[in-house]
């Protein structure tokens, strides 16, 4: 419990450091406002359209599989810590779990969805 207090202090300190730094810059920096300066950068061209658009992400299948594997890795952590106590039984239990996931991965691979579509 006490060790997490330190983590909380680190978290607060990180935010404070950024705030203090930006505050110092706010005191020191010059300001010469000009409407042209506020244009988004598009290599010197007059910017057109909005950048916050519906964007076609080409890796959504990866993202779906990622969720599965990320949860899997969280499951493996406690198993890995206790591996020596669990012995042969624990090893084969995890092997079955991994094989099921790998079958899923191989299926996705063969269906050619692990591609940049």
């Amino acid at each position: 419990m006490l060790s997490w207090v330190n983590v909380a202090i680190f978290l607060i300190a990180g935010v404070v450091v950024v705030a203090v730094g930006l505050g110092m810059a706010w005191l020191l920096r010059p300001s010469y406002p000009d409407p042209k300066k506020l244009d988004p950068y598009e290599c010197g061209e007059v910017p057109f359209g909005d950048a916050q658009v519906r964007f076609n992400i080409r890796y959504y299948i990866f993202a779906l599989i990622f969720v599965v594997f990320d949860i899997e890795s969280v499951f493996i952590y406690p198993w890995a810590v206790l591996f020596r106590q669990l012995g042969v039984f624990g090893f084969f239990e995890m092997l079955v779990f991994l094989v099921i996931l790998v079958v899923g991965l191989v299926y996705a691979w063969k269906k050619k969805v692990l591609e940049w579509v």
Binding site: A25, P40, Y41
Partner: peptide
Amino acid sequence: KLLVKEDIIPRGVD
């Protein structure tokens, strides 16, 4: 140099 640079927040940002 970075500390004394002018701060620009472009229009249209969130």
